[in-house]
Design a protein around this nucleic acid. Structure first.
Lengths: 234, 234
DNA sequence: CCGCTTCATTGCGCTATCGCAAATGCAGGG
DNA sequence: CCCTGCATTTGCGATAGCGCAATGAAGCGG
């Protein structure tokens, strides 16, 4: 087993406020895994044997409906927890997690979660805070889906992605992992066709610049106006 | 201040596994409030000064969008926590809570929440479990809104209401609090018109029986088939 | 018991968005 | 460097569901 350095996790919110020794204890029971692009970290409904922290790459969390449709619940960026089924009182994963790029994760056996949480109250607090934040995010999404039409929903989704994973280029803010029209559709409850049409229209207006599996927001401010419905749509 | 009896809260999930003395301590700092129908327990964006448990009645949790539209996030039934902003790391309420019927709640000052959670780990665990459950509920809702069309969404919403608050009558399962077409529309992201049309159609087919601010599901099984899309719609 | 207010129903036209299908283009593998 | 497969674009209907408006019920207060 390879040695893991404390600095790997020292800065992460999930471990904020923990002592160096605690970090070492925690790391001692972690495995580090390399997850190849397009393979899964865990699968929906599978026994939740581990929980994870993403160290590098991007992970897509996906729910599959009984009739085979997919919904992208969220994207995970480095430093975030995933697969914390235990923290919400489940024994199976409620969704699948797929590596969008090659990834590195740390994994712990599920049963350690409650040990960590009781032994290091800060750790428990931090993961609960994560759950709380996600609850708010998802609720916001429900409100959007209930009240906004597709164009504004897609605009909001792009802005969130940019905020989370935007990399500044000379063109504007690039979403720095591969994302298809289909992916955006699955985040917003629409079809790839509609997303494609919207992106084309926006490109026409100079708001974005997009290509195969990539999107750059060139004028975030104008896109934001559109997302908030504070602008006439022709 | 009136004495509150331990039996009020002894059976509630939020206080499961706590000792009798603990219950008494906790109750000692609670105020009991009567909330009149159609008045609010707390308002969105207001400073979260208290958290609550509903003892009797029904409460509607509502989010208001910047442009004045409403979305009903959930209905609270007796025994459930509400206003637990602190548990998700907020200092203001993320939504408003309105009494749907005359209600009785217990209220505690917010600052006591973290005290309770540390002094009685079971209490913390239980509320976190509540947050986790709600996260799952809301995620299910997102998936529904993204993949199902209105008819199935409304069917699912009714079934959830019946499951949560159904009272058996000779007609079928009555949702035992006043609920308008508008309310159902705000739960499902549609309009009162569409809900009205659906209920009329379903009444025609004998699935439900509905009137002014009330709905009875007469054939839950058939409605479930419809909700799950396992039935042809004509 | 009457009048008012709130809730519900329903017809009708409209449009946002879907669904299908065909065409084009890009990118990596051999 | 060409081939193959996936991603994307775009036209063209079809339609689910919205929005408006008018009408009808039902309950509440006086």
């Amino acid at each position: 087993m390879n040695r893991l350095d404390r600095s790997l996790i020292a800065g992460l919110p999930a471990f904020e406020g923990l002592t160096a020794e605690t970090l070492d204890t925690v790391l001692a029971s972690a495995r580090s895994l390399r997850i190849e692009k397009d393979t899964s970290v865990f699968e929906q409904d599978e026994e939740a044997s581990s929980f994870f922290i993403l160290l590098d790459g991007r992970v897509r969390v996906v729910k599959l409906t009984p009739d085979g449709q997919q919904v992208i619940v969220r994207y995970i960026v480095p430093g975030e927890l995933l697969g914390i089924a235990q923290a919400i009182g489940r024994s199976t994963y409620p969704a699948s997690a797929i590596a969008v790029t090659d990834c590195v994760v740390l994994a712990w056996p599920s049963k350690l979660w409650s040990e960590f949480a009781t032994a290091h109250p800060g750790f428990g607090m931090n993961t609960y805070k994560t759950v709380g934040t996600r609850l708010q995010d998802v609720q916001t999404q429900v409100v959007e889906m209930a009240t906004e039409q597709v164009e504004r929903r897609v605009a909001h989704a792009l802005l969130r992605l940019v905020q989370q994973s935007g990399r500044k280029t000379d063109e504007g803010l690039l979403i720095d992992f591969p994302i298809s029209r289909q992916d955006i559709a699955e985040m917003t409850g629409t079809t790839l066709h509609t997303v494609s049409r919207l992106l084309s229209a926006w490109e026409e207006k100079g708001l974005v610049k997009s290509g195969r599996q990539q999107v750059t927001v060139t004028q975030p401010h104008r896109l934001m106006l559109l997302a908030d419905g504070r602008v006439e749509r022709e």
